[in-house]
Design a protein around this nucleic acid. Structure first.
Length: 449
RNA sequence: GAGAGUAUAGCUCAGCUGGUUAGAGCGAUAGUUUGUGGCACUAUAGGUCGUGGGUUCGAGCCCCAUUACUCUCCCCA
């Protein structure tokens, strides 16, 4: 038989990894909850129609499509064969596939709003932590199945939402112990730049090129813009924009001189100033663009300090997400946590608390039939007090039982042999320090494990 | 979609210009006179060298094909 293997780009998570990941999820979830966000879960699969065309041409190709379960009527055979040829040509047909795996959490959320907007109280704040699937070529830090962790608020234009989301970022990362820089920019400013440059149609090309700045450098960005058909003069203005620097105040000052005449630019600057008034721990970065096209206002990106790693969070404001589903005029703003990268950062900087990694707290040694029966009885009492315990599965040498505890990193061993059984006592040993003490069996329940 | 690399024991890898019975470390299991572990020592198990062809007296090593995985670009989290 062939060796079993995993589908490309997927992973098993062992006990230690699951615990650490849960720790991240729980920390972020608790912050979401404290800020009044409500959980939402949507199905792993959506109707293909719901997803197609929402992520651009590239994105459509990366959607995992689910094959229909055969024909209900043999008469359709010929038609099906015909339709299948279309699939081979890269086209979609509901005859062959009408469902697909969730590609992100935002579109299913928009779909949910579109279905339920009549019954929801706005502003509607939800968070969602679920896996998504992409038929991408996997590589480092990039998988075909991975978790997203999103919080959005829709039905409100207030910038207070942006303030809250920025605060959620700093609170969550502080709780996780990660030192981060929260960068912000405003799509309105980028739009203004395109207007000032004199070519609004090139907005997307400009943002895409700018987004690559820290990766490929100013020279290559110029090259790319040139290729997209911008003139040297236009690119000079963009370069001037990209070289803005200094403190937040200085940056705003420089930008004002550059874009002051432009209405959009003015609003964009005012919005950023609104956030700055809240004394948030944020940094203006006018070179921040983010790839997703649906953003229209403030955009966020979070980077971990002291470690070489891409962004570990991002988000922004969008005006009309549900318009795609026929329900217009519901603006929103949202953020996302990149859990897999956060995991890598925390692993590298050793930020996981040791408690997270302990499964079983106490191992009861098995030293005979009567002894283990007593041990079992005591163990159940500890379990009732929510202390994770195990009884060694068979009577064997001390050596083996110790090794088991050692391998599983169990911090305490409780030893009840014939002597202890007779005298109603128990030996409790701290396996890390090697210290041990003898207690009355009933005192065990009061022991601070 | 474009490109590069890797494939030998459960894991990480050696294996010389092709030459007899393919090795190490870690791990696993057992033991070192059966009520105190982690260390050390000893022993044992475990591989038709990814798969299919070819060259050769002879292939883990060379050639071709194929599959899987890893990485880079595109794109993205």
């Amino acid at each position: 038989m062939a060796k079993p293997s995993l589908p490309q780009g997927t992973r098993d998570f062992n006990a230690a990894t699951v615990r650490k990941r849960q720790y991240i999820f729980n920390t972020i979830r608790s912050v979401f909850e404290v800020y009044g966000y409500q959980p939402l879960e949507t199905p792993a699969m959506e109707n293909l129609e719901t997803l197609m065309g929402k992520y651009g041409e590239e994105g459509d190709k990366l959607i995992f499509k689910i094959l229909n379960n055969g024909l209900d009527n043999a008469a359709k055979n010929e038609k099906a064969t015909e339709e299948f040829t279309k699939i081979l040509l890269g086209k979609n047909t509901s005859f062959i596939t009408e469902r697909a795996l969730r590609y992100d959490l935002t579109i299913p959320f928009a779909r949910y709003i579109a279905i339920n907007h009549n019954q929801l109280t706005f502003p509607f704040k939800r968070y969602q932590i679920q896996p998504v699937w992409r038929a991408d070529r996997p590589q480092k830090g990039r998988y075909r199945e991975f978790y997203q962790c999103d919080a959005d608020v829709v039905g409100s234009k207030s910038l207070v939402n942006e303030v809250e989301l920025a605060t959620i970022y700093s609170t969550a990362f502080e709780k996780l112990g990660i030192d981060v820089e929260i960068r912000i920019n405003n799509r309105k400013i980028l739009a203004a730049l395109a207007e000032v440059v004199g070519d609004e149609a090139k907005l997307t090309d400009i943002t895409v090129a700018i987004d690559k700045l820290d990766k490929i450098g100013i020279g290559k960005v110029r090259e790319e813009l040139l290729q997209k058909g911008l003139t040297e003069n236009q690119i000079d203005i963009i370069e001037k924009y990209l070289t803005i620097n200094g403190s937040n105040e200085e940056k705003i000052k420089q930008l004002t001189t550059l874009l002051a005449q432009n209405e959009k630019g003015k609003t964009g600057i005012e919005e950023i100033e609104f956030l700055l008034n809240y004394q948030l721990n944020i940094v203006i970065d006018f070179t921040l663009a983010r790839g997703l096209n649906y953003y229209t206002g403030i955009i966020f990106e979070v980077k971990a300090k002291n470690v070489q790693m891409g962004s570990i969070g991002g988000g922004g404001r969008y005006d009309d997400l549900t318009g795609l589903f026929g329900v217009p005029n519901i603006p929103g703003v949202g953020i996302s946590f990149g859990v897999d990268r956060i995991y890598d950062v925390m692993e590298e900087l050793q930020l996981f608390p040791t408690e997270v990694q302990i499964g079983t707290k106490v191992l009861f040694f098995n030293l005979g039939e009567a002894e283990s029966k007593k041990a079992f009885e005591l163990m159940q009492q500890l379990r009732n007090k929510n202390i994770a315990c195990e009884l060694f599965h068979e009577q064997t040498k001390f050596d083996k039982q110790f090794k088991y505890a050692d391998k599983k990193q169990i911090p305490y061993a409780i030893i009840i042999g014939s002597k202890e059984l007779e005298e109603n006592i128990a030996v409790i040993k701290n396996l890390q320090t090697g210290e041990q003490q003898t207690l009355q069996q009933k005192e065990l329940l009061l022991f601070a494990f």
